[in-house]
Amino acid sequence: MSTPKKILVYVDGTEPSITAAQYAICLASFYRADLIALYVVNTKAMEDLLKARIFLQDELMEYEHDMEADAQRYLNYVNELALKKGVTIVPRSRRGSVHKEIVDLINEEEVDLLVIGELARIRSWRDEFYDETERAIRMAPCSVLIAKDEDKVWQMYESLV
């Protein structure tokens, strides 16, 4: 069985996504794999909110600006986590629909493992009511690892020399 050569971790600033980043750093270290961290500024959702008239035009621009800043901040944070463990991370920020950008980057970079944070525990029966992360999992052309148990992952990360 071949080991992963290129790992992608999706980071959206939530606690589960930071746990996923810690797991991905451990995997990249174990397997000496390349590691990419991706943040997607969800412009698709913002455009939908503008169409629905929930957002004003200036509000949309304000949120876009905030999300660009969030992207930089969270990518910097996971980069620091990686550097502490001697792992190099390639930070990538993209704009668009989250699941589509994840899948596109997997294809472009020939990623062979996607690491993603734990999904929300409670799900609705409504088909359209699943989130972007779940869509990415369904559509990813590579294997997907869902990082769970924040405490155990943290211990694993901390024990990494």
Binding site: N42, D48, E128, D131
Partner: peptide
């Protein structure tokens, strides 16, 4: 500093 989850929650409400 959490515009992402805010935007996604609003989008979910629109779908709902």
């Amino acid at each position: 500093n959490q515009s992402g989850p805010h935007v996604e929650a609003l989008a979910e409400i629109v779908k709902l």
